[in-house]
Design a protein around this nucleic acid. Structure first.
Lengths: 260, 260
DNA sequence: CGGGGAATTGAGAGGGATCAAAAAGGGTGG
DNA sequence: CCACCCTTTTTGATCCCTCTCAATTCCCCG
């Protein structure tokens, strides 16, 4: 329950995140209202809610979604540690999306005006916020390509690869779970793979498929030995084959990103 | 062919755009490299291209897209006058998208570093860039909901309504084409509806449907008298029915937006 | 008048959706 | 430690929305 100082934030130690100047950190620290730990299922933002706060996810997973009036739900994307939540709200006439925690999570809470303060006081940080938003849009772009043009099997493969990469980038340096799935007993963390706290229903809602078909597709690919998904952890047994199935080329390491 | 001064930009006269301070306009003006007029089909940005320039669309339509290696194409969204183009590029490890002109168009061209200059020199403008990017993301979010969860008929209705609204917001005040489709002869501009320079193939690629099925769906809805699409112009004959089909509630007028 | 890109149409195939149950798990109160 | 309840995972059968493939017909232009 103790609060973490921004300059001591464990996330910043990861190579995934870029360094920030002391003054930048001080400003963020001053804008931070509080730090909370909430249980899985908590709704951070309700669909259509106005004047929502801003969050930075420190630990855990969440997802953004939208629903049609008859209940059909589409998950827009998943949020992992380091993601800034709530910037898109209210900047639009279109109905806003909801955000719900997938796991227990720890978050920093900011007032909405912090957004403007960030830009005004420290243009560098303002620019980084723009970067984050643009980056998130590019994730949604990728997702849109999948749902619009990929077959069920390709969609599943794409989602597994992309989510795996994101989750893997958050592992402490030298971390566990070789991508080959071979348990590395000599390592500090022997758990293979990455956390994967989804439900098949979530995956289905994200992929625009029915639960039944998502399940059957998952099984088919798994039986070819391409991956293993158990106990909320995902291991890619054959990353190459999955990437080929998904028509994905990307190198490996994601670009370093800002952390507000 | 003559260049337009930012403070005399005809777009700014529209109620759709917010007012900018003189100093803001002066900065934008100084960052503007040139103004160009290019023909339909011109590729502003190639998929995967690095270090792309920045554009503001002054007139005409364009679209962003991504393709799979076997040629399947997904249109991510359409760009209309006032849209800022190219911000998302390079902010991502994921492959970038392409941007192509749908019609002859006129654009302002900026260097990519203008983005940073905007933030540094004028935080207000930086904040507005963030606003624009966040807004564009919310359009993609809506699109994703459509493709992931709406039926073909619902998707078509959604696209027609949303694009109509965007195009309508760009009509000169008191403009033409009553939404009812009744030609208003007393008005200055008697052309009904809004420009709609798409091809059925473009619509299909945007909706994640095949060309054949897009066409059949379009026909079915048209024969119910819900809209008319001829000579590159779209008229919504029964906006209420279309909105109901699309499960859209939105008020009417889009929120005022920045114009960089 | 010839040519090429759009728009139309129709027949047939198939990937996913639906619907319905049954089997697993996981907590929890007794 | 066990019975019970609720969520998630599995499976099977059947249906139908969309895709594919293949022509034609339009329409704009040189």
């Amino acid at each position: 329950m103790s609060t973490t100082a921004c300059n001591a934030c464990p996330l910043r130690a990861l190579p995934l995140f870029v360094e920030h100047e002391g003054a930048d950190l001080a400003l963020v620290q001053s804008l931070k209202r509080r730090e909370v730990t909430w249980p899985a299922g908590t709704a951070l933002i309700h669909e259509g809610q106005a004047d929502t706060p801003l969050f930075t996810l420190l630990q855990g997973w969440a997802f953004r979604y939208k629903t049609l009036s008859d209940g059909r739900r589409q998950i827009l994307n998943f949020l992992l540690a380091g993601d800034l939540i709530g910037v898109q709200q209210k900047m639009s006439d279109s109905a806003a999306h909801g955000v719900t925690l997938l796991t227990d999570a720890r978050l920093c809470v900011f007032d909405r005006d912090a957004l403007w303060a960030l830009h005004r006081e420290r243009p560098t940080l303002g620019f980084r916020v723009t970067w984050l938003v643009a980056h998130e849009e590019s994730l949604v772009d990728d997702h849109l390509l999948s749902i619009g043009r990929r077959s069920a099997e390709e969609r599943v493969a794409t989602a597994l690869v992309l989510l795996y990469k994101r989750a893997a980038a958050l592992r402490p340096a030298g971390g566990a779970g070789a991508a080959t799935g071979a348990p590395s007993d000599a390592e500090p963390d022997t758990t293979p793979g990455v956390p994967f706290p989804l439900t098949q229903q979530h995956l289905a809602d994200a992929l625009g498929l029915s639960l039944a078909h998502t399940h059957k597709t998952l099984r088919r690919i798994e039986q070819r030995g391409l991956f293993r998904w158990r106990d909320e952890r995902l291991v890619l047994l054959d990353p190459k084959a999955l990437a080929r199935l998904a028509d994905l080329y990307g190198d490996g390491k994601p670009a370093p990103r800002p952390l507000i």
